[in-house]
Each structure stands twice: as structure tokens, then as C-alpha cells.
Design a protein around this nucleic acid. Structure first.
Lengths: 337, 337
DNA sequence: TTCTTGAATGTGAACGTACACATCGCCAAT
DNA sequence: ATTGGCGATGTGTACGTTCACATTCAAGAA
């Protein structure tokens, strides 16, 4: 008298109860046209009654279609990636697809390969990679990926699979804004060197500085966090050989402004600050932050759109970069001297 | 001469190339003990050579184990849920599990049911629900879920499946801090009414107010955003019948402080503010925000731990709530009068 | 009537894997 | 020489579904 673990009902159970063949049930499940309405209803009733749920594994096995898009992300709670993932999820869901998400903690080759292997072994039909570290991107090229894929936030590394807001243009926008205000001594607090986006922003910054025939100190390499911005600011302000700062993201800008405040410096009176991303909180910083807005949701949507069109045999020519937008608020002003 | 879509290699292809039976390959894949090292190596070599990847669908079909944990989340880019999901992902990965994530945009019964159905049809072995709206929780009770599951951020709705930081205690901590400083007129800006956590925080606030025999106006119902905090603040400050504000989260606190600044009010000189969550940015707000820290990562880890122990037949008695912690920074001070 | 047609339904595979159960050597003990 | 045992490997089958093809049946055309 053991408890006898009840097996979940399968298509044959349903068929037997409805008095039809399993194939008929399959047809009902797949909305086949030639099914008598009364039969369909009977099957549907039985399905509801016994709580039958089609087994995706079996379905995927025979069709080799999983209706799943794989997402590989680096493990972060950052606003940008998170927003993109949400947009991807929604766009995918609307197209009848779901997401299988896995992330990598370290950026080493083995863990990237293992993550990709996992996703592909899930028979995902397409892949979105939101892992903007250089190493990830390189590893990707090594692996033979036989499904459509797109990498997000990988400006400039376009091998026909990249989709991103133009980081270089964004950085130039921010830098030019400061230059136009009259600043000549501008410092850049960058993101981590191995992040593609961080590098692109730095390049944009340096290009713009160069075009204006200005000079700048070597950018500080940060880690995107407000904490870093704060401590870097404390350090930087001991010398104060600049009148403006372009931070690689809004969080570092926030931390930097905190350091300014503590050093008795006024933003934008003494120092101008520009961020990057335009997180929702940026408008409420003290003072509200001038920053570069990128539309993360749009990126996510476009990624799915691109992938889906490739899946249905389309060319998938959609690689134009999305333009970022400068949002001028209250942290920038002409230099004091 | 059509391009002839190449089929991915399967276990039999590998076996043939390695000169062994498919079962031997299977044994290599599953780390079976009795395999001659030389054979194992030969198989491994072939696997690497042809780029063989085990088909998860087939594997799941025959074992009825997917090694996947399903995650149902409401679509948000909030710091808390995101952090928890990351922790879940990591803990799951370390235990050899992966995540299948789906989210619900609207909170209606049909979309919840569809999301759950999807996850269960993926044969997920366990379920984590991070959808703190009341409706989701109710819908869950209706559905027959035959796998271990746990709901996060659902204080007080414990039906043996809930895991959360004690929101009531957190809110009391925040409120008591303000009362201890001498404030008697405290206003609460709450999260959306149908969020379980928002309600719990409000209850904690009201209990503490009551215990101190104070009075308070009806809490404002917000939407968690800094924008809301700002506009609510503008409105609230027209009357200024309070000396302290307890905001339902850090973002609303930030927005409120923005409104204070614009109204020429000093925080904490004129008005004290306490937030909730302790997002990483809170320490760098202007001034740094006094808030209640909850350990979202811990929640995620514990969820996986709980689920895994249930899966391996354990009792899974792990429902003690996690204590939140008050972090006093610079937005609170005794009332001016 | 008989044949044709098409709608509605049924039957036999196949997908790729793991489990249960053989089978095959080979060595040590008898 | 025979037996027993065990390490190493092979064979049959099942998992739940869909696809390709077959069959049934009723209605209309000849």
C-alpha cells in the first residue's frame, strides 16, 4: 500500500477519457482546423477536468522547437540590463516565446561556454547575450552557435549580431555639452575597462576632447557603483585640477556628487557633472542630474524583433544603432573661473 | 542540391565515432563509475570534436527531471526583486539547477494561470514566486501546484510557503526611530495598496504609531517611484502638518527629499526622512538616507535552500523570517520645534 | 447504384535519452 | 579445469508528443 506517486495525465489519458484517439487530442492542442467543434469541446472539457498540461519536453523533442529564447546575462542588478531583460521578456511573450535565463558570475571562458552550452542544450531557438564584458564577446566568437543570436550593449563590436545604443555618440554628446559650456578641464570616471560599453564611452569622450583640442588626465577606471564614485571623488578633489566630470554612469555620478558635497564644493557652481543612462532616480538627485538617456527597453524589444525575423527566414537587417539623448538638468553650468 | 539542414549530433553519432555503444556514451555523460578511463577519454574527445550537446528535452522526458527551477516575477526593474533573482540564480546554479523565468505584466487571474501553467509544463521541479501583489498570491492558492514552491516578499501571508524579511518589524524599526527622536507628527508614504509588502509596512507603521499613542494622517498610496515621492512631497509640503516622513521605499524617499529641497526645506533640519530597502545608492543621497536594510540576496539564497531540501525529501522547515536592520544615516534628527 | 471527394479521425513511426537488464571478459579462488 | 564475481560494456524499452500517412464516413456527382 505505498502512496503510489501519481503520474501526471498525458495525452493518451485525455484521449481515452474523451473517447477519441491521442492524435485528435494533439490536434485540439495545436488548433488544427479539421476538428469537429463538438469533439474539440469534449476534449477541452476533459483537459480542464483532469488538469492536463502538455509536456514541453516531449513536444520540444519531437518538433525541435522549444519556443524559448535564451538569455545570457552577467550577474548584475543594474538598471540597464534589467530593464532590457524585462522588455525582452514582454516582447517574447507577446510572440508566444518564453525566456530561459542564465547568468555568469565570473567572466572566464569555461563558465561562458558552460552557460552557452546549457542554453543550447535547452534547444533555445535564439540567443540574447547581455554580457558586455569583452571576454564574453570574444568567447562567443569561438563557440559554434547555430541559432540566431544578438549581443546587446556591445557597441563597436558589430559582427552582424550586435544591437546597441550608440555609446560613442552618447559620450560625445555629454562631453560636447560640457565643452560648449566652456569647460576645458574635464575628467572622465569610466566603468570597468573590460566592459565594452565602458570602453566605448571612454572612446567617445576622448574623441570629443581631442576634436576640441583639449587635454585631459587619464580616465579613472571604476566599477559602476556609487561607492566608487564617492571614493574616487574624494581622491580627485584633493587636487581639483578640473571643473567638470563626465561619469560613466549615473550611480558613479551620484557618488561623485556626494564627495563634492562633503568637500564643500557646489554642483554645478564649482563643478559640473554629467552622468550616463538616465536611471529613473537621476531626475531627483540633488541637484537633478544632467545625463545621457538610453532607451534600454527599446533595445530589448528590437533584439526580439530582430531574432524573430531571422527565425522566420527574414534577413534581419536591423542593425542600425539607436541614438542616445542628452538630458540637461541641473548639474551642469559654465565653469566658475 | 538543397542545403540540407544538418542535424545536431546525438548520442548515437558520438557512440559510432568513438566505437562504443550509445549507452557507454550516456554513462560518460552521467559520470558513471564503471567506465574505463581510456574509453571515457575517447568519448570525451569525440564529444568535443563534433560539438555534441546533450538534448535536455530528451533527457527531461525520460527522467522527468528538468533540473530547472521556475521563477515567476512581476515585471519590474526594482532593486529588491532583481537582487533576489540574481541570488536565486547563483544558488541554483551552484546546486546544478537553472532558472526558467517568466513574468506577468498584468495581475489578472488568467495571466497568472498561464504563467504557472507554462512553468509547470516545462516540468520545473520547484517554483519561486516573486510577485508581491495580493491577487497573485490569491490566484496561487487556487491552482493545484504539485511541486514545492515558495513565495517571496509576502509577509504575513504565510501558508507554509512564504519567505520574507519581516516587513512589519522593519517598519516599526523605522517608525520607532523617528518617535525616539521626538517626532510626534509622522506621515507615511506607502507603496501600492495591493502589494503585500506595502501593506505590511503600513501595518507596522500604524502599530508603532498606535503603541506610542500618537496620531497620524491616512498614509499616501504611492507607486514606489521617485517621481511619485516628488509630487506627493510637493503636495504634502503645502500644509506641512508633520515633521517626519517614513517612505515605503528609498526611491520615494529620494523624490520626497527633492520636493523638500525645492520647497526650501532642510532635511533633516526641518523634516526627517526614513526610507526602506537600503538600495546601494541610498548611502550617497543628499543627505545620505536613513533607511531599513533588507537582505534581498539572503532571501533568494534561502528560497533555493528551502526548495532544494524539500526536493530531497527534507521537511523544509525554514520559515523563520529574516530580521531587517535600521541603518541610521543623515536624514533624521530631532524635530525643530 | 457506384464512384469521387473531402472532412474527420486513427495508426505507426520517430525524436534523443536513461533505466533495467543482459552479456562479455578476465582474474582469483576452488 | 571449473566456478564465482565483478568490472566493463551492450540491448531493449519507455518517456509524451508530433508528423506522415492511412482509414473511415457521409454527401454529392456520375
Amino acid at each position: 500500500m505505498e502512496p503510489e506517486k501519481v503520474r501526471a495525465p498525458n495525452i493518451r489519458d485525455v484521449a481515452a477519457l474523451a473517447g477519441v484517439s491521442y492524435q485528435t487530442v494533439s490536434r485540439v492542442l495545436n488548433d488544427s482546423p479539421s476538428i469537429k467543434p463538438s469533439t474539440r469541446q469534449r476534449v477541452l472539457d476533459v483537459i480542464a477536468e483532469v488538469g492536463y498540461r502538455p509536456n514541453q519536453a516531449a513536444r520540444a523533442l519531437v518538433t525541435s522547437r522549444s519556443r524559448t529564447i535564451g538569455v545570457l546575462s552577467s550577474q548584475t542588478a543594474h538598471y540597464g540590463p534589467t530593464t532590457s531583460v524585462n522588455a525582452i521578456e514582454q516582447a517574447a511573450r507577446e510572440a508566444g516565446y518564453r525566456l530561459s535565463i542564465t547568468s555568469i558570475s565570473s567572466g572566464d571562458y569555461a563558465s561562458i561556454k558552460s552557460a552557452i552550452d546549457y542554453l543550447l542544450s535547452q534547444a533555445v531557438e535564439a540567443l540574447v547575450v547581455i554580457a558586455p564584458q569583452v571576454r564574453v564577446f570574444d568567447a562567443l566568437a569561438d563557440l559554434s552557435i547555430n541559432v540566431p543570436y544578438v549581443t546587446l550593449e556591445s557597441t563597436g563590436r558589430d559582427s552582424g549580431h550586435s544591437l546597441s545604443v550608440d555609446q560613442v555618440a552618447g559620450a560625445r554628446l555629454a562631453t560636447k555639452h560640457l565643452i560648449d559650456l566652456g569647460h576645458t578641464e574635464i575628467t572622465h570616471i569610466s566603468g570597468p575597462q573590460d566592459w565594452i560599453e565602458a570602453d566605448a564611452r571612454m572612446q567617445g569622450f576622448l574623441h570629443e576632447i581631442n576634436d576640441a583640442e583639449l587635454r585631459t588626465r587619464a580616465p579613472i577606471l571604476g566599477d559602476w557603483s556609487a561607492h566608487f564614485g564617492y571614493y574616487a571623488g574624494l581622491e580627485l578633489l584633493r587636487f581639483r585640477d578640473f571643473t567638470a566630470v563626465f561619469a560613466g554612469n549615473d550611480q558613479m555620478a551620484l557618488g561623485f556628487m556626494h564627495a563634492c558635497r562633503e568637500s564643500g564644493l557646489d554642483v554645478p557652481g564649482d563643478i559640473s557633472v554629467v552622468g550616463f543612462d538616465d536611471i529613473p532616480e537621476a531626475a531627483h538627485f540633488s541637484p537633478p542630474l544632467t545625463t545621457v538617456r538610453q532607451n534600454f527597453a527599446e533595445i530589448g524589444r528590437r533584439a526580439v524583433e530582430l531574432l524573430l525575423s531571422e527565425l522566420s527566414g527574414g534577413a534581419g537587417q536591423n542593425h542600425d544603432q539607436i541614438r542616445p539623448e542628452l538630458v540637461v538638468r541641473a548639474t551642469t553650468a559654465p565653469p566658475a573661473w
